[in-house]
Design a protein around this nucleic acid. Sequence first.
DNA 1: CAATTGCCGTACAGGGGTGTACGGTCTTTT
DNA 2: AAAAGACCGTACACCCCTGTACGGCAATTG
Lengths: 185, 185
Amino acid sequence: MAQRTLDREDWIDAGLTALEAGGTEAVAALPLARALGVTRGSFYWHFASREELLEAVVARWERDHSDAVLDALESITDPWERLRALCERAASKPPSLFIRLLEATDREPAAREAIQRSSERRLAVIGRACRETGMTPAVARRHALLMYSAYVGLARLLDEEPGRMTPRERAAYARHLVVTLVPSE
Amino acid sequence: MAQRTLDREDWIDAGLTALEAGGTEAVAALPLARALGVTRGSFYWHFASREELLEAVVARWERDHSDAVLDALESITDPWERLRALCERAASKPPSLFIRLLEATDREPAAREAIQRSSERRLAVIGRACRETGMTPAVARRHALLMYSAYVGLARLLDEEPGRMTPRERAAYARHLVVTLVPSE
DNA sequence: CAATTGCCGTACAGGGGTGTACGGTCTTTT
DNA sequence: AAAAGACCGTACACCCCTGTACGGCAATTG
């Protein structure tokens, strides 16, 4: 269990944990070394620079926490059902990693690029679902922008103050989202 | 025109400019001194610490860019009109200062507290307008949360990529917001 | 016309981070 | 068993920022 030595993946794991807790500025050689109980000598064996670490952490987030859930969503064939699932997810526990990356887009190019790609994909997925419910392409684009904005905004709000909504209130809010944002069949 | 010496307000002015351009980390003694063409010797005459500067900058934002516009909004008596004005504003040029503060809430207590107060006030104002259009208090709360989330989310998106929407598209989006989020009279 | 007062420069001490150059020490391979 | 490789510690030079102490100078003010 107690691994004798660390490898690259261990640092990336620790990086994701640190990112969630302390934002991108916690994803750095010295803080992570402290958390892992080693010195930076180990870090610079696995990574050439702090930038390379952050890029690796961000890449893993994009693969496991962005692309993966979008793939799962796209596997839902019925577009109304897909949009409802989207509303459910929007009102569930806020995605801390996403928020942390969002907060760092002005300082960290790696975060900005990943967030930009992810946002574009999300908008495309939502827009396609909207079109499949019968909206015109132009309306679908606007509605996708509205739904995604509502997702991002709520995530921010909830991340700031997790106690703002109880699970019961989140469920009620999810229903409200469905009623106001998902077109009727 | 070329003032011979700087006062506290000059530093706060420069702080707001730096905040918009470089986020809260640009609101600091050394960067601002460079921008103003002086040394930090001047800064520490006007402020006891970097924290005090940021607090002053944030306080001015809250007064001039949050409370002021909310006061103006609340002066609109008709609640439907008030909500329409809100949608207009949401789809207009994104509030960079607001976004910068939002991005710093995890590092800067001053920003977090101001954003929290501002968010609370905004939610209250929107919620009241919703109630005045006939919604029940519970529904009004949820709808206010949705409208404010959409505002925050779009602001983030547009700030990241200002070229995403032309003025024409923003106008169309504002109409879309009114249609989907403002109840009919 | 002297004396404050307001504003600014300079110099120092320190904190926290980065990268680099080495040397060790285990572990694996041959 | 010796060599090679993987991992980590240590020490150094550096950057960028903070805060403090102090000294100078210009513009009021008495």
